[in-house]
């Protein structure tokens, strides 16, 4: 197993209260898997993803259980070990590509940053790799994009840039936290296609977080349904879609608008 999450619990301590946002989450992923996690906002899906990426604050938060990635327990390893994995073995992309990019740095600089941290490559070689990464995410004019700033690009382009900067280090696991929510419907489909292609061609495992079950259905093989920090249902995507056991899951399916574009597999 590449990734094994066991009994993951996350508690947030406020000044005078403690809230458990993730309760006993268990799942595993093999290399090249695509796993979806669906749930409403506040269901704990993003928290779980951030925990795996090692991005949860070390203050005012209590984490228990195990997150074992390639035999290293990410929950109790040192920051130094974690940093070696972050951005080289595990990469992450986020919901708001504009806010997730540094507004005052050029795209090229940001795409290359992973290489700068994790390799000893020279500047020219890094640039070459960055241009290739930008081309791989199907950006038309990589050279121009390389020299522009985030605010000069469209939303879809920015998310492609985020994917390029995540993939430039060839990670084993890509965590995508609602990567299409902030985008137009047509752009959404393109990004999902791109992720599919990356998974197929490079064998990168993808953990895809979404509130949109139909989107998960078009991309993932397996899915976890989360509610209030608990996994309420899990299994093959198609099975759950056709035959949901939980009322909550049914609710999520019914919430999908009847748009032929959305319902890919259902029609």
């Amino acid at each position: 197993m590449m990734l094994k999450v066991e009994d993951l619990c996350i508690k947030i301590h406020d000044k005078n209260s403690t809230e458990t946002v993730v309760k006993d989450v268990d799942f595993t992923m093999k290399r090249g898997d695509i796993l979806g996690i669906v749930g409403e906002s506040g269901s704990g899906k993003t928290m779980s993803a951030l925990a795996i990426a090692g991005l949860l604050s070390r203050h005012n938060m209590e984490k228990s259980g195990n997150i074992i990635f390639e035999d290293i327990n990410l929950l109790n390893c040192s920051r130094k070990v974690l940093r070696k994995i972050q951005g080289s073995e595990i990469s992450m992309i986020f919901q708001e590509p504009l806010n997730s990019l540094n507004p005052i740095k050029k795209i090229g600089w940001q795409v290359e940053e992973g290489l700068k941290i994790h390799t000893t490559m020279e500047r020219l070689e890094r640039k070459e790799r960055a241009l290739k990464a930008l081309k791989d995410v199907e950006l038309d004019n990589p050279e121009a994009v390389y020299n522009s700033y985030p605010h000069e690009l469209s939303g879809g382009m920015r998310q492609r840039v985020m994917i390029a900067s995540a993939m430039i280090v060839s990670p084993k696991l890509l965590i995508a936290d609602e990567p299409t929510t902030a985008l137009d419907v047509t752009i959404q489909a393109q990004i999902v296609e791109l992720l599919k292609k990356i998974n197929k061609e490079r064998g990168t495992a993808i953990l895809f977080i979404s509130h949109d079950l139909s989107l998960v259905n078009t991309l993932c093989e397996n899915v976890l349904v989360m509610k209030d920090g608990l996994v309420v249902e899990s299994g093959k995507c198609a099975d759950i879609f056709d035959n949901p056991r939980e009322a909550y899951t049914k609710g999520l399916i019914e919430a999908i608008p009847h748009n032929p574009f959305y319902n890919g597999k259902v029609i």
Binding site: G54, L55, Q86, S91, N99, L101, N102, G114, I117
Partner: peptide
């Protein structure tokens, strides 16, 4: 949020501060 991105690339806290936040 871009600070979170910087951390996700494996930056140390100091690097996040001087390379991203300060500017």
């Amino acid at each position: 949020e871009y600070v979170r991105t910087a951390y996700s690339r494996g930056n140390a806290t100091k690097a996040v501060f001087y390379r991203h936040v300060l500017g």
